[in-house]
Each structure stands twice: as C-alpha cells, then as structure tokens.
Amino acid sequence: MDRAELVELLSPEGLRLLDSLPPWNEKDDVVRTVAALRKQGHSPGLVAAVLSQARLRARARAKFGEFASRMLFTEAGLEQATRLPVAALHAGRFARAGIRHIADLGCGIGGDALAFAAIDLEVTAADADEVTAAVASYNLSPFPHVRVLNERAEDVPLGGIGGVWLDPARRRVEGGTTRRLADPADYSPSLDFAFGLGERMPVGVKLGPGTDRELIPAGTEAQWISVDGEVVELGVWFGPLARPGIGRSALVVQGGSGHELAAPADSEDAEVGPLGDYLYEPDGAVIRARLIGELARAHDARMLSEGIAYLTADRPFETPFARGFRVIERLSAEERKLRMALAERGIGTLEIKKRGSDVDPAGLRKRLKLEGDASATLVLTREAGRHVALLVERID
C-alpha cells in the first residue's frame, strides 16, 4: 500500500465503504464487485484500496480473530505480525517483570503493541515506514496510553522507558511483491542494534524460528513458540525478561492452551535404540530448541537414528510435545517392493512423512500408483542410519 492509497482509505468515505463490505470470499466475482462499486460513484483508487483491505482483513482473522474486522493492514505487516494470543504472552512477560512503559521499536501494524496496551501498559510504538506507522496509529487509536511515532528504531529516545520490544523487519516490498530478507544485517533495525540494546536494558527480540542459532547471544533466554503445530517465532529475552536457569525453551500452544518444555541449555540427544512399538514426532518448537533429548528421557524413549528427529518407545505415552504413532509394520524401503506391498493392502490414499530421506513425497506417491479404498500413513526415515519404511497409525 502506498501513501496515495492510504489517503483514499483513511477518508470518511473510504472507511465507511470498507466497513460496509460483506466478508471477503475468494470465490466471489471480483470484477462484478468492482463494477458495482464503480457504478455507485466510487473512484477506481478507492475501490482498489478497500478491496485490498477486505482481502487482508479476511487473511488476518487467523492471527487477530474478530479484531481483524476493525483493523487496517499492509501486506508485509500482516505477514510478519504476531498472532494475538502469542503477543499476549509477550505482554505478560513484560508485566511480570514490573515494566510499565514499553517501547515497541519497529512496531509494524501494531500487533504486539495492541497486546501491551490491552493490559494497561504504556506504549511508545515506532516504525520507520510512513504508511506502516499510519496504519499502526489507526489500529492503536482506541488506547489513550499509546503513542505512535514515524521514526527509525535507532532514533527513538528511551528516557523513562522501562523495556524494549523489537520485531525487526525481515521482509522488503519490491516491485509489488514481498521478499524475505536472508541476511540479518539487512533487517530493520539490525540485530547488532537490537542485541546491543539488550546489553543495557530489558529487551525482547522476535526473530524467525529458523534464525541461525549461532547468532543468539550468551546469557539470554531463547524461546521457540509453535501454534497448532506451526513454529511461528523465536523470542530472545535479555535481563529481567529472561527467566533464571532457563536458556532454551519450547512453548507449544494448542487450542488456546500452552505447554512448555525448558532447560538451562541445549539438551544432549537420547541414546539411539531399536524400533519399538511406537514412534513419536516431536513438535517443531522442541526440535528448534534442541530439547529432543529432554523429551525422550522424560518418557523412557530413545532416538531412532542419530541426528533424526524421531523418537521410539516400547509403550505409548501422552505428551503435548510430540505426535504419536503406533507402528503397524515395517515395509521394504525399495520402491518397487514398497509399491507391491501397498497394492497388496489395498491402500489408495497415503500420507507420507519423512525425515532423513531425500525422496519427494508427491513424486513418490505418483510413482506408487496407489489403488484401493484403504488409507494409511507411511514414514520414511532411518533406523540406526539405514533407510526404513514404516506403516503407522496415529494415536489419539
């Protein structure tokens, strides 16, 4: 969204028109909708602006729920925005540390600042991009104890502020498309600035879950968070925002409930052992936090192969930190024999999971020429370094 589009959108006519539109549906005839709005006398620029926002609001429901229907968004801002339940966790950490005034530097569309303000924390939010700052100002306007600045993070005065939250911009819009930045030196603000600030005051930094672990400063708490099976972020916490004795943690949020696995540092992997009757696939946050060994030892499980994130056990166990499967049988990993075995069992629908195997599941599924009414789950992995194919079923 550019400045001209924002001006159109923020006009009284633009906001009224946006709020009057029915919920966005990808199956609707957009051409017909545009024609109907133009026939009502609305300008082409305004029609484009409100329809773009209607589409973004529909996408934003996954992160903001009902709040999305009263917010404005940019494409890049929505992609990077924190889910509201996760932002509430960030806010709670600042509140428990006794910090009452937070600077949200690089605030984007204001997702985290919304959560801070909702628990009556004072917020100074800033974004270097003029349009993004204006969108954040609109989204945060219901809160009198929030101010939004169109400033670079590096230029915001921090006098009287108790703690800082940074979500460095990791995407750039070029030619109408959003590009993810691979080099942390290109983030805005840079990691050097963010981590340098953490050496002086309480700071939390949100990063992508795949961030190079070598970049995580010593003495901080690194927490990976997954929501309903998707790893969504790495949070790095400095000073009193980092909990004593915790260097690595995995927070697994499922259906609104959170479960945490934590340790002082990376845990050593469990011993490798033979395939048992049950196979477990650790949650992505547990894998990223390198706490697989911690999980295994808590449930008398073992690694199936060195360096492969599957656990196996002789007895089933319940945990929010892994998905469990009962092993039905071991099949040949050789493709021709595998095809014959699946045909004998009448398997026509096959879910393929893999770790430690370079096979392309979509291509393999096509080559297997599946036929039949039965469905199954196949795991392609390694046992003690050797390729194996396991027919499994999920444990409720």
Rank of each mutant, 00 (worst) to 15 (best):
G273Y: 05
G348E: 11
R336E: 14
L364T: 14
E334H: 14
G258W: 09
V272I: 12
A362G: 05
P264H: 12
P320C: 06
S332L: 05
Y278P: 00
D266E: 14
W224I: 00
A265C: 06
H299K: 00
A362T: 13
I347V: 15
E351N: 11
P320L: 06
R288V: 00
I308D: 06
G229I: 13
A298E: 06
I225E: 06
I225K: 04
L234T: 03
A250Y: 10
K353I: 04
F325P: 01
W237C: 00
F238K: 13
S305Y: 12
V327G: 00
L251T: 14
L342W: 09
V359C: 02
G346M: 09
Q254N: 11
A242M: 07
L275S: 08
L350M: 09
P316W: 03
L295E: 02
K337Q: 13
A270N: 06
P264M: 08
L350K: 13
A289V: 05
R326H: 06
E344F: 10
R323Y: 02
E233Q: 12
G245N: 13
A285Q: 09
Y310N: 04
D360N: 15
L342Q: 11
D228V: 04
K337M: 07
G255L: 02
E271T: 07
A309V: 05
E334R: 15
G346N: 12
V232K: 15
L279F: 03
L241I: 08
A222D: 07
E230R: 15
V286G: 01
R326Q: 12
G258D: 05
A296H: 10
R345T: 02
G356H: 13
G256P: 03
S357F: 11
G239D: 15
L311S: 08
F238H: 12
A289P: 01
R288M: 03
L342A: 08
G239Q: 14
E281P: 00
E281L: 02
F238Q: 12
Q223M: 07
D283H: 09
V359N: 06
V236H: 10
E294N: 03
G245I: 09
P361W: 15
E318K: 04
V272E: 14
F325K: 09
A322K: 04
E281F: 02
E344V: 03
V253H: 09
A263I: 03
G363C: 05
M340C: 05
I287E: 06
V253C: 09
L279W: 02
V272W: 11
E351Y: 12
E221K: 09
